[in-house]
Simulated assay, not measured.
Amino acid sequence: MKRRILHLFFPTRCPVCGELIGAMERFCAECTAKLGVYSGSFKIDGADSFTAAFNYNENVKPAVFLLKNGTDGNSSYALGGALADRLKADGITSKVDVIIPAPMHKKDILRRGFNQSVLIASEVGRVLGLPVDTKSVVKSRHTHSQKELSRVSRAVNLKSAFTASPEVKGKNVLLIDDICTTGSTLREITAALKKSGAASVHCACCCKTLSRKYESEI
C-alpha cells in the first residue's frame, strides 16, 4: 500500500534504464530480459552456502550504481526482492533465522550516509519474514576500498577488520552484501561469526562478478 501511494506522487522507474514501471514492478520487461541469472558454483571458505541473484555486468550495473550512490531509484526493492526469490528457490530460507548485512566502518557510513547492504537486507527480510540484525557485527577497523586492490591485497586489507558479538552464538545467519567479487569480505565476516559461535552462515549477494574463464564458457 505504501509503494502504491508513493507511486502516485513519485512514479516508480526501472533502476536500470529509468523507464516508468508499475508500483510493484522491479525492472521493466526489456531490462528483465537482459539480466543474467547467476548459475555459478562459487564457495566462501567457512560458509555453509553461497547464493547470488544476478551476474554482475553492464546490464545490472546501473541499478547497483544508483544503490551505492544513495539515489536508490527502486534499486533496493528490485535487487533485494530478486535475491529473496532466489533464496527461497534454493531452499535457504528454512535454514536461517536472522539476517545480518555486511557492515561498513562508521567513517564510511558518515561519508555515504547509509549502508546499501542494510537496504538490501531490509527488503530481503521483509519478503522472507526474517529479522534483520545490524548490531551484532561491526567493522572495527577502517580499510582501503576493495575495488582498488588485487585479489591477494583484498584478503590482506580485510584481515581481522570485523568483529562479531557473542549474541550470534547458536544462530543460523544469512549474511548479505550487495556485490561479491573475490569473496574476501564475506569470508572475513563469516570467520568472525563462526568464531563467536554462529551455528551456520549462509552468504548471499545481489550480484556476483564472473571470472574471464566463466564468461568465455557462457
Rank of each mutant, 00 (worst) to 15 (best):
G170P: 07
A164R: 12
D178N: 12
G170L: 01
A164S: 14
D177G: 03
L186Q: 08
I176E: 03
P166W: 10
N157R: 03
S145F: 01
I179P: 02
L175P: 07
E188D: 12
P166C: 10
V132T: 02
S150P: 06
G197Y: 13
V137K: 03
S136R: 08
G197M: 11
S165G: 15
V138Q: 12
V152L: 11
A191W: 10
T134M: 03
D133E: 02
S140Y: 05
S196T: 00
S140L: 11
R187M: 10
T190Q: 02
T185R: 12
D178R: 02
T143Q: 07
K135W: 09
I189R: 05
V138W: 04
R187T: 15
V132K: 04
K195Y: 04
V137S: 05
S200H: 01
T134F: 00
A199W: 08
K169I: 06
T190K: 10
K159E: 13
S153I: 00
L149A: 14
A198K: 04
L186K: 02
A198C: 06
K135P: 00
V137C: 03
G183E: 05
K135A: 06
K147R: 12
N172G: 04
T134Y: 00
P166H: 06
A191D: 07
S165Q: 09
S153E: 15
T143K: 07
L158K: 00
A161L: 10
R141L: 12
S136V: 10
T185M: 14
L175W: 08
V173Q: 05
T181R: 09
K147Q: 05
N172K: 15
T182K: 10
L193R: 08
N172L: 03
T185K: 12
A164M: 12
V168M: 08
G197E: 13
F162R: 11
I179H: 06
A198M: 09
T181N: 07
C180R: 07
T182C: 09
S140D: 13
D177L: 03
V138G: 02
L158Y: 07
K147N: 05
L174G: 09
D178C: 13
A199V: 12
Q146P: 14
T182G: 11
K147I: 14
G183A: 13
A161N: 09
T190N: 13
V138R: 14
T134V: 15
A155I: 15
R141M: 01
V138N: 12
L149W: 09
H142G: 05
K195N: 09
K169D: 14
A192I: 09
K159D: 10
T143C: 01
V138F: 13
D177W: 01
S200C: 15
L174M: 13
S160H: 13
I176F: 11
T181P: 08
K195V: 07
S145W: 04
T134S: 02
G170C: 04
D133L: 09
A191V: 04
I179D: 04
L193Q: 03
A199H: 14
